[in-house]
Amino acid sequence: MQPLHDIQQAFFRVVYENEFSLSSEIKDAKGLNGESRLKVYQSSILGIQTDALAAVYPVIKKLVGDEFFLAMGKAYLRKYFSPSGDLHNLGGQMAEFLQDFEPAKSLPYLADVAKLEWIWHRIFHAADEENLDFNELAKIPVEQHGQLQFYLRDGARLLASPYPVHRIWQLNQDDCKDEESVDLDEGGVQLLVTRNGYEIEMHPLNDDEWKFLQLIQLGVSLSGITEKIPEYPLDELLPQCVAKGWINRFEIRA
């Protein structure tokens, strides 16, 4: 008799290594031997886990097709085992995986689409956040404005790609009526992905907005930003980012 620990390790090898030594511990019955019974579980586990990946990466699935996605999902699962009993945590290394996945080499933008879908997934479940308290902000004396440090929403993420991943994402939504195709030569995109209430928003950013939000994310104060890049149109950028709800907290730096 094998101890519990060994049986469970052997089960794991059935699923990901196709190694069926555990079969000898399983009863043959009704014309089904141990191996065929273990295969039912192998198929069910890989099915549950690839379904979970498909739920997080619907655009990738649409781009590569069902059959390719299934094979790709299984290859992913053999490399990155599921980290948790909560399936929402599965799939976090997809972008990294796709960069090295030989059969997908002809689709170089896939990894960045995967980054965008993972960001979407995490933001969907991120903590609810308050909007910026304008009354508190209005109380800050003008002489302290340079010390103001603003913060992006905790759930917000910046993503830059040399490919038009935002358009690729949009055109592959189920409710997209736009029948245009994306030209990869149309160039890359700088995106802010954030949540407005419970809806996820993606905002393509111009160079000024991108650099500004990057500096904010790095923790640079307003006077620091002005020192670094004096020509920045801060008077326009700050109110605009605040009004759009991208920035929701501030503090006075000593």
Binding site: L4, F11, F12, I45, F81, P83, S84, G85, L87, L90
Partner: peptide, 15 residues
């Protein structure tokens, strides 16, 4: 369902 720090995400029977 858990093996080491990984998970099989299925309801697996015990002996």
């Amino acid at each position: 369902g858990r093996v080491g720090e990984y998970h099989l995400n299925e309801l697996l029977p015990l002996p």
